[in-house]
Simulated scan of single mutants.
Amino acid sequence: MNLPPSGRRVLVSGASRGLGRAVAQTFAANGDRVAVHFGSRVDDARLTLESLAGTGHVLVGGDLTRPNGVAAVVDMASEALGGIDVLVNNAAVNIRHPLAETPYEEWAAVWQQHVAVNLLATANLSHLAARLMIEQGTGGRIVNVGSRGAFRGEPDHPAYAATKAAVHALGQSLAVSLAPYGIAVASIAPGFFATERVAPRLEGPEGESIRQQSPFGGVGSAEEIAGAVLWLSSPAAEWSSGTILDLNGASYLRS
């Protein structure tokens, strides 16, 4: 039930910019057809779509914080592509909320938002996409974008770290339950990497300290992370199902 190395039908959540855009571009360059999901940044998503090599790609908008919104996204992607072979769970929020500085009402709201987008949307997308893959009978791939923060902690972003740890655990559970159907599930745990969103931090006073977190003296690129996602989605990576792949330039080593 292995998938071909290219020509697959790929849904990438949160693909309007940043890592999601790089992932979509990488799959398209590989000869795959991509459903570019966006929440509210439709103009950015159109730029992503226009940047993709090949043909047959599609924009899919939808609110992933609502179960029926998730269902609509999967339905639209599946209908436009003729099915789904690969799901990349990239959509996420990351809002600063250190406990000592954050009022309780804001704290509670931020946690709800992180759980809704980072964890529940990932779980719901995975359920619907995996059921499609099971019905198709040709196997499939699910790759979750987690974080280094799930292991080392994020004092200013505790909800982000906690939900990414849950995403890692979810991926491992699904790897076991979906293996009999030829569906491999893996996660990546990136460290700091450059995108337009974090460019001001890298260019500002803390930039050097961020770069020095890695003994390489720099940060990763979205394209490097996307390349790892592509490999984990490949036929060659089936035996990596259940893995959590660290991509942090040796900035954090776990046993």
Results as ranks from 00 to 15, higher is better:
residue 94 N to T: 09
residue 17 R to L: 06
residue 145 V to K: 03
residue 71 A to S: 13
residue 182 G to V: 08
residue 99 L to S: 12
residue 20 G to M: 02
residue 12 V to Q: 00
residue 153 G to T: 08
residue 162 A to L: 11
residue 253 L to N: 13
residue 21 R to F: 00
residue 139 G to Y: 09
residue 103 P to Y: 11
residue 76 M to S: 15
residue 173 S to L: 10
residue 65 T to Q: 09
residue 94 N to W: 03
residue 84 I to S: 02
residue 91 A to S: 05
residue 220 G to D: 05
residue 60 V to K: 09
residue 129 A to E: 06
residue 48 T to H: 06
residue 46 R to H: 01
residue 178 L to D: 07
residue 70 V to K: 08
residue 163 T to P: 02
residue 88 V to L: 07
residue 126 S to L: 04
residue 16 S to G: 13
residue 10 V to R: 05
residue 116 A to T: 09
residue 188 I to M: 15
residue 91 A to T: 10
residue 138 T to R: 13
residue 113 Q to A: 15
residue 182 G to E: 13
residue 12 V to L: 03
residue 90 N to H: 08
residue 4 P to W: 03
residue 234 S to A: 14
residue 154 E to T: 14
residue 68 N to K: 14
residue 129 A to C: 02
residue 92 A to I: 06
residue 15 A to I: 06
residue 28 A to M: 03
residue 235 P to W: 15
residue 221 S to W: 01
residue 184 A to R: 04
residue 40 S to I: 09
residue 252 Y to E: 14
residue 64 L to E: 07
residue 249 G to K: 00
residue 248 N to K: 10
residue 144 N to M: 11
residue 216 F to E: 09
residue 180 P to G: 12
residue 105 E to W: 03
residue 195 T to G: 07
residue 63 D to H: 05
residue 179 A to D: 10
residue 192 F to I: 14
residue 80 A to D: 08
residue 9 R to M: 01
residue 142 I to E: 02
residue 156 D to V: 09
residue 118 N to L: 01
residue 32 D to V: 01
residue 226 A to D: 06
residue 18 G to P: 09
residue 62 G to K: 05
residue 190 P to M: 00
residue 213 Q to S: 00
residue 104 Y to F: 07
residue 91 A to W: 00
residue 145 V to H: 02
residue 64 L to A: 06
residue 78 S to A: 13
residue 41 R to S: 15
residue 167 V to E: 05
residue 212 Q to P: 11
residue 197 R to D: 14
residue 69 G to R: 14
residue 14 G to H: 01
residue 142 I to V: 08
residue 252 Y to D: 14
residue 31 G to H: 13
residue 79 E to W: 04
residue 156 D to W: 07
residue 26 T to G: 02
residue 27 F to Q: 15
residue 5 P to D: 13
residue 170 L to M: 13
residue 142 I to K: 04
residue 3 L to Y: 03
residue 87 L to H: 05
residue 248 N to I: 11
residue 104 Y to N: 03
residue 240 S to M: 07
residue 24 A to P: 11
residue 198 V to S: 13
residue 241 S to I: 09
residue 228 A to C: 12
residue 196 E to M: 00
residue 228 A to L: 00
residue 85 D to P: 08
residue 139 G to C: 04
residue 117 V to T: 14
residue 52 L to P: 03
residue 165 A to Q: 03
residue 13 S to P: 08
residue 41 R to E: 07
residue 174 L to S: 02
residue 121 A to W: 01
residue 30 N to V: 12
residue 41 R to K: 12
residue 64 L to P: 08
residue 107 W to N: 12
residue 155 P to E: 06
residue 30 N to K: 05
residue 195 T to D: 10
residue 20 G to H: 02
residue 136 Q to H: 03
residue 253 L to H: 12
residue 218 G to W: 05
residue 24 A to D: 12
residue 17 R to C: 14
residue 129 A to G: 10
residue 186 A to T: 06
residue 47 L to W: 04
residue 220 G to W: 01
residue 87 L to Q: 03
residue 231 W to E: 11
residue 252 Y to C: 13
residue 126 S to G: 12
residue 52 L to R: 04
